[in-house]
Design a protein around this nucleic acid. Structure first.
Lengths: 111, 111
DNA sequence: TTCTCGTGCAACCCTGTGGTTGCACCAGAA
DNA sequence: TTCTGGTGCAACCACAGGGTTGCACGAGAA
């Protein structure tokens, strides 16, 4: 289960690859799909797609389930939502740091 | 000078590296610093730090200015804020897609 | 003018990773 | 039972990227 504290490391590097972002798009549009199907819409082999899906799964962004002899992947709404919230926190943290910087700069001028 | 709109590609991969995230932290705390100074607080060489700073600059997250024979780097508040906003947009986009998925799923059940 | 010391370049090394191909395996269809 | 097609390994290849070392250059201090 990978629905807990999002790991900056994994999420950012997972999202850094264009093919993986595309995969998230495709899965979002279709609801779910197999690696073979996804490979049909991408300029890479099925195996390459599988590798990307493994990375996305590691980052908690997608999940998979067996369906007969197929393996269907789908995005994890909750994980994506959590990631979005987490990004906001990062942004907020930056903001507070920047505020602190400005304050210091102004104090320095005041001296 | 690299002051363009945030590129998913660059931002995500820039933020994917732990050392670079640490650099952003250090710069946020100090306001500004040289590569040599930053290397003093990290387990890597000055040259390694310089390379990371180049990447961060490429993503528009930091900027540098000459100060005598020194080159002082600092975070780009505006760019960071823009990135935060952009992340929110990505999150929102995901949300709408997920909503669409759920709607489709429910319709399918209804049939 | 000479000495110092931070920069900027460049050459290298090694690991990670995105991509490929080949093949064995197995569940469902015939 | 046999055939078929999607999975799951595993071996391999090429290149990007994080890290290092060495050295020339140049601005400010002495």
């Amino acid at each position: 289960m990978t629905t807990e504290p999002v790991a900056a490391e994994d999420v950012f590097s997972a999202l850094a690859d264009p093919t993986r972002r595309r995969l998230l798009e495709l899965l979002s549009e279709r609801g779910d799909a197999t690696a073979t199907e996804l490979a049909g819409d991408l300029p890479v082999s099925r195996q390459a797609v599988v590798k990307h899906l493994v990375v996305l799964d590691g980052a908690g962004l997608v999940t998979a389930r067996r369906d007969g002899r197929e393996r269907r992947y789908q995005v994890r709404p909750d994980a994506l939502a959590a990631t979005a919230r987490w990004m906001n926190q990062v942004a907020a943290q930056w903001s507070s740091r920047l505020t602190a910087i400005k304050r210091l700069a102004e104090q320095a001028e005041g001296d």
